[in-house]
Design a protein around this nucleic acid. Sequence first.
DNA 1: CGGTTTTGACCCGCGC
DNA 2: GCGCGGGTCAAAACCG
Length: 175
Amino acid sequence: MLTSHHQDSSPMMFHVTTSAQLPPDVAGEHGQPLMGFRQDDQGLRLGFAAPSQVGQMRMLGVNSNCSKRCEKKARKPRYAFQTRSAVDILDDGYRWRKYGQKAVKNSTFPRSYYRCTHPGCHVKKQVQRTAKDKGVVTTTYEGVHSHPIQKPADNFESMLRQMQIYNPSLNPTSA
DNA sequence: CGGTTTTGACCCGCGC
DNA sequence: GCGCGGGTCAAAACCG
């Protein structure tokens, strides 16, 4: 699914070759994005991860959560990934309202449930800290946002542009 | 005062 | 049918 193009001090870039929608961006503890995705005007999906996250982050995969009858149901995509962070709630640019917390079995840490507060957008996410390594947070997104990010992410976009410059070989429009 | 978090109750699917 | 595990509701508390 992922084709990495990691260079030493620049953020890792990877191609995202999936027909599914992409999860939202994830920002770090100090505002800098840890990882994110964007789709250029030609439809190619690009992802990136901050250098500090390289080796720490791994995509856990994409599944359609098609456990049972789902032939006519609008199946919601689910995305899971792990990041190493001291805080549970990574600011990914969206507004989330916590609506539940549950202790799950075989895990010392509870799982938190969040819903996107944007009207009409019913994206949910679960956040759970890994039992053995409390530095790793597993975030699972369910659904696709039907609206742009509300948080001012001005330097975020500029950083994305910079990363394209750092990795000119990744820019398909240059060909 | 409005939005968010907290937290126990409630609900539901599943396996026994 | 019942208990368990997991997801959600909702009322109260909390907070800027």
